[in-house]
Design a protein around this nucleic acid. Structure first.
Lengths: 201, 201
DNA sequence: GAGATAGGAAACGCAATGTCTCTTAATGAG
DNA sequence: CTCATTAAGAGACATTGCGTTTCCTATCTC
């Protein structure tokens, strides 16, 4: 007969500080993934985190604050390495696949949904800026490598051009409410980005 | 002492049928514009339309249905003519300006937000398809004219290329939660679309 | 006129939000 | 170790919006 130590363990201990906050945001994230933003409730998050709603309200005065904090924390964990395949096409395809990750997708969808005004708008602007800057710097690196290899004439391109692949992926995700398929990613790169980069200027 | 005829007028008359439905959707649209989807309530719409919530529920069983119907009705009123300026660049800029209209913007934002499943997903898919098809057919016309004028080599282009301007505009609107500026529209056309159309294939 | 339909009003129940009070676990200082 | 402070967790309460139902009666057709 097995002895379940967990259910017979000593009295429950209260979490405090960072450990508690981590557990709260984990629960909020799990609820977002499981049911979406619309259906997420303070009650559900509190129950999932084994806490009371007052604990949540003490930190995040609104549902959007809580959701934004949960997503911001998860976005920071996305492995967003800079690929180096030796070919620009394959580099960008790999980078777009990383951006197609569930975490990034939910972040994009949420950022668009929460068109906040007031204090929380700063959090959302930060979230969008963070995602944009991370993709932007990596795209610049890929373009510079390609220029060095002679694949493209120059890496000195308008911002619109540098961003076009990510913007199209972002729109794809938002318009379809699902992750992009590998074929869709290749379309973006093969039909739009590569011809655009090779266009005479 | 003034006599206020309106308050002393005969008994209020009930609206019926199409007249009532128009008034309901007008009110829903006004509420969407004034406060956004999140803050829109059945109570507010009913009050704005001087009706009861039951009247709304008899037609639209959920908030999203009501919002979608209001937006679909307004989208149909957008003057979405096909420009003919004699220059592809100016044609596309004009077309993007039309798509930047408040009505279209709110439609795009709402379509993305209401990631429906079940019966109402059809309404939303229709809304997205309607907007996409209208822009798509006009873009094809502009491209064909440009090819005839010799501005571009061919109008026979991948779907991704034909759609790139509208996709980028859509993403611009969603990412910033505001209408695109004229400069942003020109960027899309001058930095991305035109070079892409002239790229060798 | 009668009968059918549906608009409008009011009431009800439920769930989620938002708030408050109280008990007590947990931590740090002395 | 004790004591004081902080805040976690529980529970209760009020409000609001959603969703529904019932009833009265305006409106239309025959």
């Amino acid at each position: 007969m097995s002895l379940n130590e967990r259910s017979d363990a000593g009295p429950q201990r209260r979490r405090r500080g960072a450990a508690l906050e981590g557990a709260l945001l984990d629960a909020a994230w799990a609820e977002l993934v499981a049911t979406g933003y619309e259906a997420m409730t303070y009650d559900a998050v509190a129950e999932r985190a084994s806490t009371s709603r007052a604990v949540l309200y003490r930190r995040w005065p609104s549902k959007r604050d809580l959701a934004a904090a949960a997503v911001a924390r998860v976005v920071a964990t996305i492995p967003f390495d800079t690929p180096d395949t030796g070919s620009l096409r394959d580099d960008v395809v790999a980078l777009l696949h990383a951006a197609n990750d569930t975490r990034a997708r939910i972040a994009v969808q949420l950022a668009v949904r929460l068109d906040g005004t007031g204090d929380d708008a700063l959090t959302l602007a930060d979230l969008r800026t963070t995602v944009a800057e991370r993709s932007n710097t990596r795209m610049i690196t890929l373009l510079e490598r390609a220029a060095e290899r002679g694949e493209i004439a120059t890496a000195d391109l308008p911002r619109r051009v540098r961003n076009v692949a990510f913007d199209l992926l972002g729109y794809q995700i938002l318009a379809t409410q699902r992750a992009a398929t590998p074929a869709e990613i290749e379309e973006i790169v093969d039909d739009v980005l590569l011809p655009l980069l090779r266009a005479p200027r």
